[in-house]
């Protein structure tokens, strides 16, 4: 007896076939192109979303710069956090503390959805760095890498910046520092100058001579912006290495839904993943014991997954569901297209 088209057995089989076909298509996709368009989409959303009336709130875990007053679709959480921490202690630890906690909870909920995928796919400053890298590649200029010793030393900077970003506002609230140091990290963040410029708002490209503190902070901001352009040109994702948001993310990343998983048994230590890693994370190639391979500097760009030739060695999972994994077929297809990640 033949099964009718509505037969449950055939239907389930079809779905399995379709699902497998979809997984194969995703795993064999031209990852660089997909990521480029995703980054472009999120860049437009995070820089111009406000023009479309989008309001995602004040707790976004990415650089939707608050200084981009007209175009922002929400505000990077670091800006309101610093302002909130600068409240007088009796206010901060009083009733207003509920508002601070609420903001943090919203930030956390946003964050756990994408984990550090916010950095690799959504962050507009990250996208700008990737575009600068693409420009360098077209110009034929070779990129730089840190020595392992420099890498280990410099990787502490983001934690120092994170600590200062918290301590200085608390000091402002307690009266130890000037309000002119308000939002100290934002003052030195290149995003404050660069992101509003995409909406033709160049007001942040100024040195504020009103007080010595303002002079210092705005000069530091201009200097980091200059360094951002130079650094991003010669070093992939230069700024992400020092970003306190990245450190903040890592400290909260344990319960995140989006994860990078490594199956050490399938890893041959070929080093392809390390070669394509913009952040030079050595453990991605060397560590074959720890399945949770997302390290502190990782931006979850998933280029390592796309570059891995071993089927199932690296996987990106969302809430336990594999959404992208390394496959030999995918690797071969990407190599044959010359689309090396």
């Amino acid at each position: 007896m033949r099964n009718s088209p509505e037969s449950p057995a055939v239907s389930a089989l079809d779905w399995r076939v379709l699902a497998q076909a979809a997984r194969d298509a995703v795993n064999a996709c031209d990852f660089n192109r997909v990521r480029f368009w995703l980054q472009l989409f999120f860049f437009a959303l995070m820089v111009y979303g406000g023009f479309a009336g989008i309001d995602l709130g004040l707790s976004l875990p990415t650089f939707a710069c608050g200084y981009n007053q007209t175009g922002r679709p929400g505000v990077c959480y670091l800006l309101p956090l610093q302002h909130q921490l600068a409240l007088p202690p009796r206010v901060l630890f009083g009733f207003a503390g509920i508002g601070v906690l609420t903001g943090f909870v919203v930030f956390f909920l946003w964050f756990i959805a994408l984990n550090k995928g916010w950095c690799g796919f959504v962050c507009p400053l990250g996208a700008i760095q990737d575009w600068i890298t693409a420009l360098r590649r077209r110009l034929g200029v070779r990129f730089s890498r840190y020595s392992q010793k420099s890498f280990e030393t410099l990787s502490w900077i983001k934690y120092v910046l994170l600590a200062l970003m918290i301590v200085i506002p608390l000091g402002i609230g307690a009266g130890y520092f000037s309000h002119d140091m308000s939002a100290p990290f934002c003052m030195i963040c290149p995003g404050r100058l660069i992101i509003p410029a995409f909406t033709f708002d160049f007001r942040q490209f100024v040195i504020d001579f009103s007080t010595p503190t303002k002079i210092v902070m705005t000069v530091l901001g201009a200097m980091t912006t200059g360094l951002f352009f130079v650094g991003s040109f010669i070093k992939k994702r230069f700024w992400c290495f020092f970003c306190p948001m990245s450190a903040f993310h890592y400290l909260l990343s344990k319960p995140a839904a989006f994860r990078l998983i490594k199956d050490g048994d399938k890893c041959t230590r070929c080093g392809d993943c390390y070669s394509v890693c913009d952040l030079q994370i050595k453990e991605i190639a060397d560590d074959v014991n720890e399945p949770q391979i997302m390290m502190e500097d990782c931006i979850m760009c998933l280029k390592c997954v796309a570059a891995c030739p071993e089927t199932g060695a690296l996987k990106a999972k969302f809430a336990g569901l594999t959404i992208f994994e390394s496959t030999e077929a995918g690797f071969m297809k990407r190599m044959q297209k010359g689309a090396a990640p």
């Binding site: 490209f205 100024v206 040195i207 000069v219 200059g226 360094l227 352009f229 130079v230 010669i234």
Partner: peptide, 23 residues
């Protein structure tokens, strides 16, 4: 009255040039 675009852009360009040259 109290801000300067000239100095701001100047510092950005100066750091870019010096950084590029140093590299």
């Amino acid at each position: 009255d109290y801000t300067s675009y000239g100095y701001g852009v100047g510092i950005v360009v100066f750091v870019m040039v010096c950084g590029g040259l140093a590299t």
